[in-house]
Design a protein around this nucleic acid. Structure first.
Lengths: 210, 210
DNA sequence: CCTCAGTGTTGACAGTGTCCACATCCAAAG
DNA sequence: CTTTGGATGTGGACACTGTCAACACTGAGG
């Protein structure tokens, strides 16, 4: 029983987070307005300040939520990869790349705030912790593939950054509608090709000069 | 002789563009303010409206300038690649990837407005024309490498998008300071590695399963 | 010399983020 | 059971923003 909003809302913080995500989805982070969020939550324009120090702290909460969901999406295999024979760690690594793009397509509003909004990391320690955690998930996937032998030994962080750059680029260009593909399935197919290209090389199978 | 700003400024439009780029470099596009630009140009807060319909049109002009410079940077080889023996087109293609990242490091304010600011493309036709032009430079580089044989035949646009995604990801993560490298030279070295990895494949030289 | 289009200015308005003082509620102390 | 204090929500205020309308200055062409 949540009652009928007598004076104290009960769980305003969560409601504000939800409303914020919806508003960002509609108008983008730039046109996002604290007062409009308050309006949608049916409260006064000052109530949010009891739960967030300032506008940016609400955005930071959205970004934190985003990094947590992203870490989940990366870590958890999509469907129980049924008894893969070869290179399961590589498989999971590549799947996580697709998951990154899928996350971006499903929650573009989160990705926008996570990467395109200037939030001082030292002011929002939970946010930077969440982002570090998500990155470490990626590094672990790389290390697993390395010890499996399906990725070259060496600086796992650097390897992870290369892979990250590729899928991040695909994700950002996709949600900015800069790629010449419309449907989400076409975009995901393209992402899979890109990931494959990064692993196998995009050069011709028979190098011209050797 | 430009005189001493009598009443008519003379070339306010250009001055506003310069001031806008500087301001974005300092505070980012989100905190960018039309009135502050006017202050820096030493004019009233309404003078910009004689040259730009609205705030976003000034931003769009910045973005347009950015795409034009980017197209130049991609198209023109950095230093006259002295008498390359093999695969000159491939060389130029890879160099253009580095140029993309170099452009981002040199002009992060332009890149931010170009890709992270929501500008209705139909409201600013010059902007979308400039962005199309820049993309076509990239596609031409791909096609040249294809006819040289150093890239596989097939959809040049898709190939270009893969390469674009990689360098765009590197560029965006770099200027957002998300990569674990500090100096510009380290970042450029990393970018070169990533480009090389995309061409040769990041898998082990001796594939584990074949 | 006049005029008039282009350029710059002043003043206004609604909307924003944030501060302050005040109102309301719930739970624990007495 | 009352009291009371901390947490939560409200209303008003302020400086600032983007944008509009009316007005002022200027220089080139009649």
């Amino acid at each position: 029983m949540v009652a009928k909003r007598p004076y104290h809302h009960g769980n305003l913080k969560a409601a504000l987070l939800r409303a914020a995500v919806e508003l960002i989805a509609e108008v983008g982070p730039a046109a996002f307005t604290l007062r409009e969020v308050a309006r949608r939550a049916g409260i006064s324009h000052n109530a949010p300040y009891r739960h967030f120090r300032e506008k940016d702290e609400l955005l930071a909460a959205v970004a934190t939520e985003g990094f947590e969901r992203l870490a989940d999406a990366l870590g958890k295999p999509r469907k129980a990869t049924r008894a893969r024979k070869a290179n399961p760690a590589l498989r999971r690594f590549q799947a996580s790349g697709l998951a990154y793009v899928r996350f971006a397509l499903r929650s573009p509003e989160h990705l926008l705030v996570m990467f395109d909004w200037p939030l001082a990391p030292d002011r929002y320690p939970e946010l930077s912790a969440a982002s570090k955690r998500a990155f470490s998930v990626l590094v672990e996937l790389v290390e697993a593939a390395q010890s499996e032998g399906s990725l070259p030994a060496g600086d796992a962080v650097a390897l992870a950054c290369v892979a990250w750059s590729l899928v991040h680029g695909v994700a950002k260009l996709a949600i900015a509608r800069r790629l010449p593909f419309q449907s989400q399935s076409r975009i995901l197919r393209f992402a899979a090709q890109a990931i494959q290209a990064l692993y196998e090389g995009m050069g011709p199978k028979q190098p011209v000069s050797r």
